[in-house]
């Protein structure tokens, strides 16, 4: 057994000291995720229209919009499952194309909305995590061959679960044995297993009960900041964005209407539509 204080590598306290990656551009590297003039078209219709935004490592950008605003399509473009019709998506200054290498895919992880479709029903949580950990190639000299031995992978999988607040005996269980909230935590652990630099969470709490919503949000925000990830939190729910985000972006009909620091956005929304959204939210009396 390892001592309890030992942290799996790459975690808070040891920000990843990586090279800028293959093909690092010569331009000014700000770090984090940059979406530059990104457009996505379906059947000739632009569902995302020249959207630009940037997320620094360790910060959280909240992207809000109603149905049809293009926010989910933008998320899919960022993780590389939808092709761009124009513009670019950059990670630490280097372009992420449509066809991404294994390492590039791992760098940008998605937490999906539906926790009941996001886990393979035939694999245990441990098998899912192990499957990803096996792919990992370590450069450290202590692990010749680059592959983590089996016991180390098990330990790492247990550590990942601990990070999201799940007991290690969950490793031997199948997805059907977990509630929606627990599945969402497992999906987060899976995303973190590949040591990403960007975390995209698409409506991660909208199919959950309010009582677990807070837990899942706190885990995403806490680990996103702690691990210096550039986090994009997409939600139709402004109170979710208000709870954890540093910056807020508003989209409508594929266009970015406003991008502002959260403090200013919630007090003085800059766009009339932002204000309309904020005012339409039903609030509890006396709060």
């Amino acid at each position: 057994m390892t001592e309890p204080t030992a942290r799996p590598d790459g975690y808070p306290g040891s920000p990843p000291a990586r090279p800028a990656g293959p093909g690092a551009s010569a331009g000014p590297t700000l770090g984090g995720l940059e979406v530059v003039e990104a457009s996505v078209a379906f059947a000739g219709h632009r569902v995302v229209d020249r959207v630009s935004l940037a997320i620094r490592p360790g910060t959280i950008l909240g992207l809000v919009g109603e149905s049809g605003s293009g926010k989910t399509t933008l998320a899919r473009a960022i993780v590389g499952s939808v092709a761009l019709a124009g513009g670019s998506i950059r990670l630490d200054g280097s372009d992420l194309g449509r066809r991404r290498s294994s390492a590039e895919r791992r760098a940008v992880q998605l937490v999906q909305q539906d926790p009941f479709a996001s886990l393979n029903p035939l694999l245990t949580v441990g098998q899912v995590l192990d499957d990803l950990l096996r792919e990992e190639r370590l450069t450290s000299a202590t692990e010749p061959g680059g592959r983590r031995p089996r016991l180390a992978r098990q330990q790492r999988a247990a550590d990942l679960l601990a990070l999201v607040g799940l007991p290690s005996d969950a490793l031997g269980r199948y997805p059907r044995e977990f509630s929606g909230g627990q599945r969402q935590l497992i999906a987060i652990a899976r995303a973190l297993a590949v040591q990403p630099r960007v975390l995209v969470a698409d409506e991660p709490t909208s199919s959950l009960d309010v009582s677990v919503q807070r837990t899942v949000l706190d885990v995403i925000a806490g680990l996103g900041r702690g691990m210096h990830l550039a986090t994009l939190l997409i939600s139709h729910d402004l109170s979710v964005v208000h709870a954890v985000c540093d910056e807020v972006a508003v989209m409508r009909d594929g266009v970015l209407l406003e991008l502002a620091p959260a403090g200013r956005f919630f007090r003085h929304p800059g766009h009339p539509y932002s204000r309309a959204l904020l005012e339409a939210v039903p609030r509890l009396p006396g709060r």
Binding site: V210, S211, D237, V240, H242, A243, F266, E279, R283
Partner: peptide, 9 residues
């Protein structure tokens, strides 16, 4: 559990 949301000024 209801997340608070301030009314814009």
């Amino acid at each position: 559990a209801v997340l608070p949301l301030p009314v814009p000024a």
